[in-house]
Amino acid sequence: MNVGLFGTNGRMGRVLIEALNNSEQATLRAATVRDDSPWINMNVGELAGIPGQTLTCTPVSKLSPDHVDVMIDFTLPVVFEDNIRWCITHKKPVVIGTTGLSPAQVALLDEAAQHIPLVFAANYSVGVNLMLSLVRQAASALDDDTDIEIIEAHHRYKQDAPSGTALAIGEAIAGELGRDLSDCGVFSREGKMPARDQKQIGFATVRGGDIVGEHTALFADLGERLEITHKASSRLTFAKGAVRAAKWVQNKAPGRYDMINVLGLPR
């Protein structure tokens, strides 16, 4: 399988180079950067610290569809629309890990899924997707008066909050309980407040240092509490999951898929 990367010079782009270099079934054939990027013509091996690479970074406008079977996009919302429309135009499957998308951009995913197969997930870690299954089980088993909080921590450079993964956890729990996260989610607390409404799902965000990603779903009742936690120590776990998704989606019918589909986990 020949893979192309959007945003090769980003933090995840560099880790994806490593993951593809380690893969026996996938090969990096196109490494793109923005047309005004200073990284144009940079050797991808230098970017990722991998010797022996000959591929260089090219501007998106020079990307040839003949060179790739699947694209992977872990860029930013500002370039997301151009990237997805390139995939639609050239009928290329795509794995998308860009977070912080607007409602209009999420709607574009559904439009794209009418033409191409795509995988869109807030998190490509196998462990996190197992966590999504576990929090649904916990939500269905616990009483309605259990307080639910989601705590997430990431590095100082992360721009969106709460993280896409935290929101996915909240949506999984809310869906299991028959609630709408847009109605029951609480994303900030300050000052004197009334007693907690037990229909709420609260979120707490931490940003600092080089934390790769930590997520906890806290189910707190009187007398006991359950905490389901995932901690990532390397971005390579996300990159390996994305490569796994790329292999899976390559020959699928047009549609919007996620890592639950890729892993064959129950919802």
Rank of each mutant, 00 (worst) to 15 (best):
E81V: 15
E81Q: 13
D82N: 14
D82T: 12
D82L: 06
N83R: 00
N83A: 08
N83D: 13
N83T: 02
N83Y: 00
N83G: 01
I84P: 13
W86N: 05
C87T: 06
I88F: 06
I88A: 02
I88Y: 02
T89I: 01
H90Y: 14
K92N: 04
K92A: 10
P93I: 09
G97I: 05
T99F: 03
G100E: 06
G100T: 07
G100I: 08
L101H: 06
L101G: 07
L101M: 09
Q105F: 01
Q105I: 02
A107W: 00
L108Y: 01
L108N: 04
L108W: 03
L109H: 09
D110P: 02
E111V: 15
A112N: 03
A112F: 00
A112S: 04
A112E: 01
I116N: 03
I116G: 02
I116M: 03
P117Y: 01
P117M: 10
P117C: 15
L118C: 07
V119W: 00
F120E: 02
F120Q: 09
A121R: 04
A122G: 15
N123P: 07
N123T: 10
N123R: 02
Y124A: 11
S125E: 12
S125N: 05
S125I: 09
S125V: 06
V126T: 14
V126S: 05
V126H: 12
N129P: 09
N129I: 08
M131K: 08
M131V: 11
S133F: 03
S133Q: 14
L134E: 07
R136N: 06
A139S: 15
A139P: 15
A139I: 13
A141D: 09
L142D: 02
D144F: 04
D144L: 12
D145S: 15
D145A: 13
D145K: 07
T146I: 15
